[in-house]
């Protein structure tokens, strides 16, 4: 079993989408955070592969090696989520992947749960919400660099400061996460517009696959109050895991823990026996 990560491209919505791939088995799709790219999953993918998954992580349009669709950033969460859905269908035809997303990826995971839950084995929103509006103001007026000289450094350091305390004390890991957020202005602002304008709460009453909602206890962006409220809307399909000493980037901060949590949840709740 090779756990080497290889890079690939696939055409979705007329643009070339980059993705990392590792291993064979039940498809697992990881979706990154605002202004970042698939590198956030570089430590998780091999661990998922070891557990019998074909582990994938894409660069959303306008991020990393993926050009934006029509040269415009996505500004709604549903745009992002539908692209992730078409990516999953194209790259994993005839299969029901496990999809996990973090931050805006977590919001996309809720959007997928609201619209396409029957097409997934399990959905794992990490550090995301079905309704992003309470967390921060809509940043549309900061979209262009000339409109807000602070946006880019704000997003880069807003990311870093929300790490869990153990990772925040590791200067190398902090710097690495900072370098992963170099799409902060053009694409990242659209991501946060998507976060602030997103609300699928009314569509979560009929979710048809198990949902594991992961929250880092040290993160300040996503209140546990709203995580619990989201789980209540979904009902018995939902399970919440609050992780001590973890911040806004669980798959980056403790990939072994996240791989184990997701794998155990999928096996217990979805009955998938991933090939080893």
């Amino acid at each position: 079993m090779s756990t080497e990560i290889t890079g690939h491209y696939v055409s979705i919505d007329g643009t070339r989408i980059f993705y990392d791939a590792c291993g064979e088995g039940t498809p697992f799709v990881g979706v990154h955070t605002a202004g970042a790219d698939a590198r956030e999953y570089q430590y998780l993918l091999p661990l998922m592969a070891e557990r019998g998954y074909r582990a994938l992580a894409l660069d959303l349009p306008g991020h990393g090696k993926s050009y934006p669709v029509g040269w415009e950033p996505h500004r709604t969460m549903h745009q992002h989520a539908e692209l992730v859905h078409r990516f999953a269908q194209e790259v994993c035809p005839g299969e029901k992947p496990v999809v996990a997303g973090c931050s805006i990826g977590g919001c996309m995971a809720f959007d997928l749960a609201a619209h396409h839950s029957e097409d997934y084995t399990a959905i794992v929103p990490m550090e995301g919400l079905p309704d992003g509006s309470p967390i921060l103001p809509h940043p549309g007026e900061a979209e262009r660099p000339s409109w807000s000289t602070a946006w880019r450094p704000f997003l880069e350091y807003a990311a870093v400061e929300s790490l869990g305390k153990p990772t925040l004390a590791d200067a190398e890991k902090v710097k690495e996460l900072w370098w992963q957020h170099q799409n902060a202005q053009q694409a990242g602002n659209g991501d946060i517009q998507a976060w602030a304008g997103h609300d699928v709460r009314e569509l979560l009453g009929d979710v048809r696959c198990p949902i594991l909602i992961i929250k880092g206890a040290d993160d300040f962006w996503v209140p546990e109050l709203l995580i619990r409220a989201a789980a209540e809307l979904i009902g018995e399909q939902a399970e919440v895991a609050v992780l001590d000493d973890i911040g806004h980037y669980p798959m980056y901060e403790d990939p072994a823990l996240v791989a184990r949590l997701i794998d155990e949840f999928v096996r217990a709740r979805a009955g998938v026996a991933a090939a080893r």
Partner: peptide
């Protein structure tokens, strides 16, 4: 500092407090 200097309702105890405080 980023938490303290950014608008938004991230430290409320109830959903009602979030709405009353202006949400984001």
């Amino acid at each position: 500092f980023t938490d303290l200097a950014t608008s938004g309702s991230r430290h409320c105890e109830t959903l009602e407090q979030i709405v009353a405080g202006g949400g984001g």
